[in-house]
Computed example of a mutant assay.
Amino acid sequence: MIQQATFLFISGAEIAFILFIVIMVFGADKLPEIARGLGKGMRTLKDATNDIKHEITKTAEKNGIDTSITDDVKKELNKVKDDLDDFTGSVKRKF
């Protein structure tokens, strides 16, 4: 049995309600400032993640560890994803 994480799937009405609550709590004048801060924080997190990936790859290559296996795994995962998209696309079209 496959279970899906449903907490990430938020409908439009739920997003509107959350935005309404955020505006009521923080006020419309603070909203751009909050969004800017969240954007900078997400960018910092992405940059840190990329730096860590780069350091791990550089260290692995320096020590002679084969990193090409990750490329092979990515290719296989993308193939499976494409096959799954093809299958679900045909199922979605029938309903």
Rank of each mutant, 00 (worst) to 15 (best):
M1F: 00
I2M: 01
F7N: 01
L8P: 03
L8H: 02
L8C: 05
F9G: 02
S11E: 09
E14R: 04
E14S: 12
E14F: 00
I18F: 05
F20S: 11
F20L: 10
V22S: 01
V22D: 06
V22F: 07
I23P: 05
M24P: 00
V25C: 02
F26Q: 09
A28I: 15
K30I: 15
P32I: 12
A35N: 12
G37P: 03
G39H: 04
G39T: 15
K40P: 01
K40D: 12
K40G: 15
G41R: 02
M42E: 14
R43T: 05
T44M: 05
L45S: 12
K46V: 15
K46E: 14
D47F: 02
N50I: 00
D51P: 00
K53W: 07
H54K: 13
T57Q: 05
T59G: 03
E61H: 04
E61W: 02
N63K: 11
N63M: 08
I65L: 04
T67K: 00
S68D: 07
S68W: 03
I69D: 11
D71M: 09
D72L: 14
V73W: 13
K75W: 15
K75R: 15
L77P: 09
N78S: 10
K79L: 06
V80E: 08
K81I: 12
D82H: 12
D83C: 12
L84G: 04
L84C: 11
D85F: 05
D85G: 04
D86T: 13
D86V: 10
F87C: 00
G89T: 13
S90Y: 08
S90R: 14
K92P: 00
R93I: 08
K94C: 03
K94G: 07
